[in-house]
Amino acid sequence: MDWLLEADGVGQKLGVMLVAILLFVVVMGLILFFVDRPKNTPRWVVVTAFTGPAVLLIAFGLLYPGIKTIRDSFYNRTSDVFVGFDNYVTAFTQDEFQIVLRNTAIWVILVPIAATLLGLIYAVVVDRSRFEKFAKTLIFMPMAISMVGASIIWKFMYEYKPASRPQIGLLNQTLVWLGLEPQKFLLDAPMNTFWLIVVMIWIQAGFAMTILAAAIRAIPDDVVEAARLDGVNGLELFRHITVPSIRPALVVVLTTIAIGTLKVFDIVRTMTGGRFETSVIANEFYTQALRQGDTGLGSALAVILFVLVVPIIIYNVRQLRKTEEIR
């Protein structure tokens, strides 16, 4: 049965996959079969059968590891000596980690605002255009691509060659065409963080556009018409009618992108690996916990991430609830 754990070759891998799915179906089927067998199964048996697998998995995979990580964050790198808040002190005071925190702050401020703004402009413009569907699809496409794929796309955009040689990257070529010096976009701190941020904005603007366009479309026509009759012009209409009407959607978009940005890992990992002062908390967690083997510090970084994400999610969920009630 070794091949179940060490599948080698296409056939075996697909075989393992089928076995896993079949095994799963059989187990689930058996559970359901026995629950339904006698007509009057006690209720607790039914409930356990239905919720048991999910509750068990969540307890094992989310609850227990979460508590374990919080505990580990107060222990040393091999989690056997209690060190109090030392890991947190390191994370907040050492120079290299201060850069990480600074970068995370820049990401989480810039990305949501820029992506939402672009998405909003685009939603307004595209609503009046003829190629609406086509244009929207193009803008939205980066959402479907993996962040790894997006990073590779942009790595080629940022590619640098010395001025004496022909450029490979379009951005540097544009600089050369304009008569400027080519830049090492990904190497020169602190600007390289901004170039990484551009990739995230590129991905998220489509998401913002989609939701905001739908919200704009939901504004009642008579409101817009009444304003028009009162002689309100385009820009005023946008400021006094459109933006207030879609405020809840704006908040949802901003917070959702902020959550995604806090946890951004793939882009930094793929483009710079966190070197050249570009690391963020989510990437530094990976480096410390899984590459450097410093469980204590890694756990502390994960907990910091957790603490930063929770209030935004709570706010987001509340906002969603509110818009639900209004509707």
């Binding site: 413009v125 009046r128 003829r130 980066p142 955009m157 379009l170």
Partner: peptide, 20 residues
Amino acid sequence: PASIIAICLAVLWTIPTFGL
């Protein structure tokens, strides 16, 4: 004009992917 802006932005957004 809106159509023109929309198309320009869409093209701009697609250039990186198209280039690769």
